[in-house]
Each structure stands twice: as structure tokens, then as C-alpha cells.
């Protein structure tokens, strides 16, 4: 290695170690509960026969997106079932959905705050840049140190990786609300909370939904990488394919990821479009 002038790596390492030493019990509690939540959701999806889950998803797709999306959802899921990846797909779906929900719970308020407070935004933006561009694998290291291997560290890494677009798009959506409409609401005596709930969030809806969509897509890509730390699901199958140079397995499990991605993308996008009468 070339000669170093300073050593950031060791500081980060020390910080992570300090956290694991002093907050070990906290991480354990998070890990146990989190794992329980993810597995519970997984078990729920797998408790029903596959056709019930497919029918349910088709219903949602039909209601929001219409015939085309419903047909694609049904065909895609049956295809996955046919290839024999149903269990893995449901595991992945559970992890994606839980990660997305947690990411949104953190990201949406953060996006709202950063739209309202310039100073906060100045701090948040470089953080988001870092979170988005840092090679995704790097997150796996602290995840494993904090929570060892398994589903929860997978979710942890996924949440960090998938959060930035939701923060950015929420912030953008709120900033794009016409100032005159906000002023009008204020002039009629709206409280700041009323302005947020009755004006800003409804008007930022499309941008918010684009954020949800992006978060789901990012989660899905990260969940596959999280297969490396035994997060299970399709990611593990892809990894198995790579490790054994099994082109067939790699292709089929990869294809399942693609199909799941397309279905989730179309369904969430259809929430944004105004419903046709």
C-alpha cells in the first residue's frame, strides 16, 4: 500500500466498533424484533397457497392499473411459480416491502423537513449523495458487525441504500407546490399542519409516489446483493448460480428478480396515475 497521510478508515472502524460494543444489547433487540417482523410477513405470504397470493396481487393490479397490469402480474407470477422460485420470491418480496416501509417512514419526514428548512437541506444533501454512491456492498460490513448475518442486516443495508430517492423526491415535490396555493391556505387561517396535510402533501402526491416507486426498485436491487449475507430469497439463488457457475440457475433466478421488479414497478406507478372513470 502507498504511504498514507491520514487514515479515515481506521476512525470509521473505531466508531463502528465502539457502537457494537456499547450498543450491543440495543442492536440485539432490534435484530430479534426485526427478524421476527420479516419472518412473520414471509410466513404470512407463504401461509396462503400460491394461487391466493397471485389472485390478491392481480386484484390490486386490476383495481389500480387496469386489465393490462393485472394480466402481466398474473402471467409473471405464474411463470415464477412454474420455474420453482415461489418461496424465494415471497421471501424477497417480504424483505423488499418491509425495507421499503421502514425506508419511507424515515425518508418522507426527512424530505418534508429538508424542503422547509434550507439549513437542514444543506446537511442532508451530501449525506444522500454518499448513501447513494457508496458501493452497495460496503453497507454489508457494518450491517454484519451490528446484526451479524441474516435477514435483518440485509434489511438494514437495503434501507440505507434505498432511502435517498424517497427523501429527494419528497423534498422536490413539496418545493414544487405553487407558493400562491400555500399562501392562499395560510391566508384562510391554515395551521402549518393543515398546510402540510391538506395542501402540500396532496399536491406533491405524484412526486411522492415516484419516490415510493424508486425506493422499491432500489430495495429490490439491494436485496439481491444482501443475499451475500444470508438474507435469503432470490439473492441467495443468484449467488449460488455465480458460485457454482450454474448459468441456468443464475439466469432463472435473475429472471425472477426482473419479473418481480416489473410487476412492483407497474403496480406502484399505477397509483400515481389519476383513476379513469
Amino acid at each position: 500500500m502507498e504511504q498514507r497521510i491520514f487514515n479515515i478508515g481506521s476512525s470509521v472502524e473505531k466508531a463502528v466498533m465502539w457502537l457494537t460494543e456499547h450498543f450491543g444489547p440495543v442492536f440485539d433487540v432490534i435484530k430479534d424484533n426485526g427478524n421476527g417482523l420479516i419472518e412473520g410477513f414471509e410466513n404470512l405470504l407463504l401461509f396462503f397457497p400460491f394461487y391466493v397470493v397471485i389472485a390478491l396481487l392481480i386484484a390490486v393490479a386490476w383495481y389500480k392499473g387496469g386489465k393490462g397490469v393485472a394480466f402481466m402480474t398474473g402471467a409473471g407470477l405464474l411463470f415464477i411459480y412454474g420455474m420453482g422460485f415461489w418461496t424465494e420470491t415471497m421471501q424477497t418480496l417480504a424483505l423488499v416491502l418491509i425495507s421499503t416501509i421502514v425506508a419511507l417512514i424515515i425518508a418522507v419526514p426527512l424530505g418534508i423537513l429538508s424542503a422547509k428548512y434550507r439549513n437542514l437541506e444543506r446537511w442532508i444533501r451530501p449525506m444522500l449523495d454518499l448513501m447513494q454512491t457508496m458501493p452497495a456492498f460496503v453497507y454489508l460490513i457494518p450491517a454484519v458487525l451490528f446484526f451479524s448475518i441474516g435477514k435483518l442486516p440485509g434489511a438494514f443495508a437495503t434501507i440505507i441504500f434505498a432511502m435517498p430517492p424517497a427523501v429527494r423526491l419528497t423534498s422536490l415535490g413539496i418545493k414544487e407546490v405553487s407558493p400562491e396555493v400555500v399562501e392562499a391556505a395560510k391566508s384562510f387561517g391554515a395551521t402549518p399542519m393543515q398546510v402540510l396535510l391538506k395542501v402540500e402533501l396532496p399536491l406533491a402526491k405524484n412526486s411522492l409516489l415516484a419516490g415510493v416507486n424508486q425506493t422499491i426498485m432500489m430495495s429490490l436491487s439491494m436485496v439481491v446483493i444482501a443475499g451475500m449475507i444470508a438474507a435469503g430469497g432470490l439473492g441467495e439463488k443468484v449467488l449460488e448460480g455465480i458460485n457454482n457457475l450454474d448459468i441456468g440457475l443464475g439466469f432463472e433466478s435473475g429472471l425472477s428478480v426482473v419479473i418481480l421488479a416489473i410487476i412492483l414497478d407497474r403496480i406502484t406507478q399505477s397509483f400515481g396515475a389519476t383513476k379513469k372513470k
Binding site: 405553487s178 400562491e180 396555493v181 399562501e183 391566508s187 384562510f188 387561517g189 396532496p202 399536491l203
Partner: peptide, 21 residues
């Protein structure tokens, strides 16, 4: 102040300021 805005005076805007949704 909110009370004044709610019952004392109401405003009409140049670009209307309506809620599009």
C-alpha cells in the same frame, strides 16, 4: 392571527391559488 384570517379577512389572488385536486 389565525382567527382574524379565518373570520376577519379573506383574500382573492391574482393567479387564483385554487387547490387543483
Amino acid at each position: 392571527l389565525r382567527e382574524v384570517r379565518r373570520t376577519g379577512m379573506s383574500m382573492v389572488f391574482q393567479k387564483f391559488g385554487l387547490l387543483p385536486h
